[in-house]
Design a protein around this nucleic acid. Structure first.
Lengths: 159, 159
DNA sequence: TTTCAAAATATTGTATACAATTAAATTGTC
DNA sequence: GACAATTTAATTGTATACAATATTTTGAAA
């Protein structure tokens, strides 16, 4: 006889978010196809358009990605002409990511494209803000739990 | 002079969801470490605990994943003793995924573990329901847009 | 019944993610 | 100034995702 209620996939917030994330990925992949950008490449470009040049580490802080993901991603962006990767003169450990002229030239075009795509979502600014606020709460809780390592230290009584 | 406003990463709903999805992934990866399950493996097990045996195709419908992802994932689950993959007798094209005795035996333990982890989130049922409802709206919109292929057909004027 | 389209799974190739390790450069400390 | 600890990227290995293709089986139509 079950001591705990069943865990139903369709009632899981995690799956709801996981699924939405994949759909957004697909959505932007299609929308950005004319530019040949994947979704992760696109968000990297967003950060760089705001703030280039940035080191790999700085870019990673914005995107919450490490060099294991970023190094190959940036090499692909470089190959396709969006960025250049330049070893810093003042600190040889760092690699500075610069925008190319092409990237600067296409910035407005991509912004316009994304604006149109967002209109297709048919959500008001308030709806978007509210959803993001709730997600911020969830993420904050997840961060807290991870930071406190409650999971691996305190609950592992059955191990 | 910019014709369109800049697209700021931190104001993007897509990034908010992408980031939350990664955090959840990490959260469950830690929580399920004692069982040696990754997050995608875990949600596959959730569906199977509800409904096994299922064909690869049926499982994929619940998870929104295709055989390209599921086949290797299920092989890993099989290797670790959670499932068995059996070619159907009545239709040799299908592979039925059955739970092993170990999987059935560990079901309650995993449910309990996940229940504890969800408590750590500190969200009320209502808060979770509300967030999921908003995400359902977003996903529905994304599906509609994808289905209508508006992106690739109607907006591609600059191509 | 032969044939051909459709269905189910597997495979291949590309692109993330991320843990763990490596390698090089820099900093702090004595 | 030597040198250990730290920082930064890159690399390695494993596990998703998913498009595209291949293979096998089934079902339906001629």
């Amino acid at each position: 006889m079950p001591k705990v209620p069943p865990v139903l996939l369709d009632q899981q917030l995690c799956f709801s978010i996981y699924s939405a994330s994949k759909k957004f990925n697909h959505f932007y992949q299609s929308a950005l196809a004319p530019f040949g950008l994947t979704y992760p490449q696109y968000i990297a470009m967003l950060v760089l358009w705001e703030d280039a040049p940035l080191t790999v580490h700085q870019l990673g802080e914005h995107l919450e990605l490490d060099s294991g993901t970023l190094t190959p991603l940036l090499k692909r962006l470089e190959k396709q002409g969006w960025v250049s990767r330049v070893r810093s003169q003042t600190d040889e450990r760092q690699v500075l990511i610069h925008l190319t002229e092409m990237a600067t030239a296409k910035r407005e075009e991509v912004y316009a494209r994304i604006g149109q795509c967002q209109n297709l979502l048919g959500m008001t600014d308030k709806e978007i803000d509210d959803t993001m606020a709730e997600l911020a709460t969830v993420k904050s809780q997840l961060d807290t739990v991870s930071r406190q390592r409650l999971i691996t230290k305190n609950i592992d009584s059955h191990q």
